[in-house]
Simulated assay, not measured.
Amino acid sequence: MTANAEEGKGIIGRVYENGAPVIYKFVNELPGDDIRAGLPWLAVISWKYDGSSNNGMPLEKDNQGMIALEDAIEDHIESDGFLRHVYSRTGNDLKELVYYIGDQERFLEALNNTLGSHPRYPIEINFYEDRSWEDFRRLLTDFSNAPVR
């Protein structure tokens, strides 16, 4: 496990799963109590792909779609303040975009409105109640002792 400091508090870290690299991108701090209290749901957007010819990483066509999806969420939904991007992971045939949200229906409505003009993405969305932000805390702990390069 390694981590690189990027733009202040931003981190890019690498782990290996089944011998394949997996890249994590996240901000290395919990937001304040007031923000966390308003975002009790973990929303995980998963995009499975075939990276067998690219060491578990997405091929260019899939990667471009993933970037377009992430940019659309960041530009049109995250800026509204009812969600917080906590991390993304890419590798071992799986891309995940992970957010804390306040309301599942509002999130899905905003996502559908935002992606209305996009091609259909091969994604799955799962929600988990996580009022204490345990998932993100676990990620921070996992990377807290990683060597920085």
Rank of each mutant, 00 (worst) to 15 (best):
Y87C: 09
Y121I: 08
Y87H: 14
R36H: 01
E74I: 13
D130C: 13
Y100D: 04
L42N: 03
T141A: 13
A146C: 12
I125Y: 15
V22N: 01
V148D: 10
Y16C: 00
T90G: 07
T90I: 11
E6Y: 03
N113P: 02
S79L: 12
D142I: 09
P21T: 04
D34L: 02
R131V: 15
E6R: 02
S144I: 12
T114W: 09
D103H: 15
R84S: 02
D103W: 11
I123L: 12
I73V: 12
I45H: 04
G51V: 07
W47S: 00
L115V: 13
H76E: 14
D80G: 08
Y16I: 01
P58N: 06
L115T: 12
S52C: 03
M57R: 07
P58W: 05
L111D: 09
I77C: 05
N126T: 15
V15R: 04
K25C: 01
D33N: 02
V22I: 03
E109A: 14
A3K: 03
P119T: 12
S117F: 11
Q64R: 15
D75H: 11
E96D: 08
E134N: 08
L69S: 10
S117A: 14
K25P: 00
V86W: 04
I101S: 08
L83I: 10
Y100C: 06
R89P: 00
E74K: 12
N18Q: 04
I45A: 00
E70L: 07
G91P: 07
F143Y: 13
F26D: 01
R120G: 08
N92R: 10
P21L: 05
L83D: 08
S132M: 07
E134W: 06
M57A: 11
P122W: 09
S117I: 14
